[in-house]
């Protein structure tokens, strides 16, 4: 049998899991983003540093993300809308999960594609109807996976990926959010 390689170092992840079981303080991470208003709804947010394993960490390079509203919102569309970043987060998190779980289960992936759709009633953010929430009403993710596995094994990959997904959890469960003016 050929060696399975989805490009995931499962051994390192399993070792980290064992090591952090006995060192919960090292498992405390803080992810950070810094945002700056440009004009109108346009802002840029950069991400470079984070904290974890007991010390400051730095990504290989800084990433900068532009957010704006589309022209039909009377904006300049210098970037995707903020709520679309949630779709980016969810899709990439679930996809990473599929790859990791597949590697751990010895399943060779050939392609993993997904579409994410978030249903949004914008009357909420416009204040047009106070019974309508601001956020998504629902989110639907559809995976298309080509792999050396049965349909049931693929279904199980996707289910397990949701079970271990940070973004899936953050979207499906409430999170305490504090916003302050410094």
């Amino acid at each position: 049998m050929a060696t399975i390689d989805n490009g995931v170092n499962v051994q390192a992840l399993l070792e980290a899991r064992e090591a952090l079981k006995g060192a919960p303080e090292a498992a405390q991470f803080t992810w950070r983003a810094s945002s700056k208003w440009q004009k109108g709804a346009h802002s840029t947010t950069s991400i470079e540093k984070f904290f974890g394993l007991g010390q400051e960490q730095t990504h290989k390079s800084e990433s900068v993300f532009a957010a704006d509203h589309p022209e039909i919102f009377a904006a300049e569309d210098n970037g995707i809308t903020p709520i679309e970043y949630l779709l980016v987060g969810l899709a990439s998190c679930l996809t990473a999960g599929v790859a990791s779980v597949a590697q751990n289960r010895g399943i060779q992936l050939r392609s993993v594609e997904s579409t994410v759709e978030g249903g949004h009633d914008i009357r909420g953010i416009l204040g047009a109807d106070s019974d309508v929430r601001n956020g998504f009403n629902d989110i639907k993710v559809t995976f298309k996976i080509d792999a050396d596995a049965s349909a049931e094994e693929i279904e199980a990959l996707v289910a397990q990926s949701q079970k271990r997904s940070a973004v899936y959890d953050a979207l499906t469960n409430p999170t305490s959010v504090t916003v302050e003016v410094a």
Binding site: A159, Y168, T172, P174
Partner: peptide, 27 residues
């Protein structure tokens, strides 16, 4: 309903992950 995740101002908040816990159990 989904897993009870929090109680906030007398409102119970349930997880939106009910479908997946059911899929996992079915599988």
């Amino acid at each position: 309903v989904g897993r009870l995740a929090a109680v906030r101002d007398d409102v119970l908040l349930f997880s939106g992950g009910l479908r997946n816990v059911c899929s996992l159990a079915d599988l």
